[in-house]
């Protein structure tokens, strides 16, 4: 299990990946937004996306876990 943490404080703009689906290395899981900037959170290694812990529009802090992959 790998926990994916948010690199920034901001909010969740769009969730692109689907839970329970296979995911490839480098694929964008979700897009965060902060200070007028979009930050893509990418999958560090291929596997299965087990869980997404946030919803679109949620405010998040740096280092919050946003997703879990297996």
């Amino acid at each position: 299990m790998t926990e994916i943490v948010s690199p920034i404080t901001g909010s969740v703009w769009k969730i692109l990946a689907g839970v329970e689906a296979p995911i490839a290395e480098g694929e964008t899981i979700l897009i965060l937004e902060s200070m007028k900037m979009e930050i893509r959170v990418k999958c560090p290694h291929s596997g299965k996306l087990v869980e997404i812990r946030v919803n679109e529009g949620d405010s998040i802090l740096e280092d919050d876990v946003v997703a879990v992959i297996q």
């Binding site: 690199p7 920034i8 404080t9 901001g10 200070m35 900037m37 930050i39």
Partner: peptide, 13 residues
Amino acid sequence: YAEDSENFYPSPG
């Protein structure tokens, strides 16, 4: 800017 000097990620606070 309120941003990381290395990767230029924004840093509100």
